[in-house]
Amino acid sequence: MRFIRSPIVKVFTTIGLLALIALKVDFVDAFGRLIALPPLSAIAVTVISFLVLLIQAYKTKILLPEKSAWPILRIGIISQIYSVLFFGQVGGDIARAGYLAPGSGGVHRVVAAVLFDRITGLVALLALGLLGLAMNAEHFDPVLAPTLAFLMLFLLATILLGVVIRGSYAARLSAWVPTRLGSHLDNTLRAIRVFSSSPRTLLASIAMGILFQGIMIVNCAWLGSCLGIDLPLAAWAVVICAVSLVLLLPISIGGIGLRDVTLVGLLSSSGVATERALALSFAMLGIQLVMAAVGGTLLLLSQPERFADQ
């Protein structure tokens, strides 16, 4: 685990993946396509990406109703820095939990809320991905499509099983970790079970997750169309689902390399030119960097540890 966290490993992984892409894709052509992206479209897609974080904030508020949506939104924007520089989306979740915890009266409850938020978001993402695959499997390689379907179904079943797992089984899991960590894990799992035991909370969180992921898919499809990538919306649901799952792996810097390899591989199997796919990856990275820059500005101008009390 310590090996995976090493910055040196992440740097070499990023460089290696980019070198692999460079063997098959013309970087100059891809950058040229990116630069040709209409400025107004680029701005609109970026603005929508920020607005989607507002939906994410209200999704979190379902689990932490004592919080205000605006501070949660600011924390969500600041967490983009950690997503880029540290452990990917996992790093962003850790940052969100850290900034939300002060003044909450229960660290385990906040950590559980962030984890549950991520879990229901993944359920929504996988559901949309599977729906898209069922509607447009012909747009993907005959071997790739069933493989993706199996992996998505397996992950969805695993997540749903984990959400409804009984307390006795959760206690067995916590028994495998050191006593000090085991108590924290047990308290966090207990808080997650409180959230999942409420059908209203569970369904509302999943519904907000579907709205969040749905807008993200439409936004990426729009960005792709601006770059000359013409795919059905259902196919985009599969692509974004696969990319989002891959980016959960904290093995490269800001997902650079991982995103590129995944997009080029998936889109090229659908007949999209590799240079267009790489240009899309660069554009998505650019949006992420803009969001991280805004988050850095908020971090410098504000004291995010006070956000949770607002």
Rank of each mutant, 00 (worst) to 15 (best):
M1E: 08
M1F: 12
P7R: 09
I8E: 10
V11P: 02
T13P: 00
L20Q: 05
L20P: 02
A22F: 15
K24T: 14
D26H: 06
D29K: 14
I35T: 11
I35F: 12
A36P: 00
P38K: 03
L40H: 04
S41Q: 07
S41H: 07
A42I: 14
I43C: 00
F50Y: 12
L51S: 12
A57R: 01
P65K: 02
K67Q: 15
A69V: 15
W70S: 09
I72T: 09
I72F: 14
I72P: 04
I75D: 01
I75V: 15
I77K: 03
I81T: 07
S83H: 05
V84I: 13
F86A: 12
F87L: 15
G88E: 08
G91L: 09
D93P: 00
R96C: 12
L100R: 08
A101R: 11
P102V: 09
G103V: 08
G105C: 06
G105Y: 07
A112F: 11
A113V: 08
V114S: 01
V114T: 06
V114K: 00
V114N: 00
D117G: 12
D117Y: 13
T120I: 06
G121C: 07
G121Q: 06
V123E: 08
A124E: 07
A124G: 05
G129M: 05
L130W: 07
L130S: 10
G132Y: 11
G132L: 02
P142M: 09
P142H: 09
A145W: 13
P146S: 03
T147P: 05
L148E: 03
A149D: 09
L151V: 15
L153M: 10
L153V: 15
T158E: 01
I159E: 00
V164S: 14
R166W: 06
G167E: 13
S168W: 14
A170C: 11
R172F: 11
P178M: 13
P178D: 12
R180I: 05
R180L: 10
S183E: 15
N187P: 00
T188S: 02
T188N: 10
T188V: 15
L189V: 06
R193M: 03
V194L: 15
P199K: 01
L203M: 12
L203K: 02
A204G: 02
I206G: 11
I206T: 09
L211P: 03
Q213H: 14
I215A: 08
I217P: 03
I217S: 04
V218E: 10
V218D: 00
A221Y: 02
L223F: 10
L223S: 11
G224D: 06
S225A: 12
L227R: 06
G228N: 07
L231A: 08
I240N: 05
I240M: 09
C241R: 01
V243D: 07
S244A: 14
L245S: 13
L249R: 06
P250A: 06
G254Y: 02
G255V: 02
L258H: 08
R259F: 13
V261S: 04
T262C: 13
V264T: 05
G265L: 12
S270K: 11
A273I: 06
E275Q: 10
L278G: 05
F282P: 09
G286P: 05
G296Y: 04
S302G: 04
S302K: 05
E305M: 07
E305H: 14
E305S: 08
D309H: 13
D309M: 08
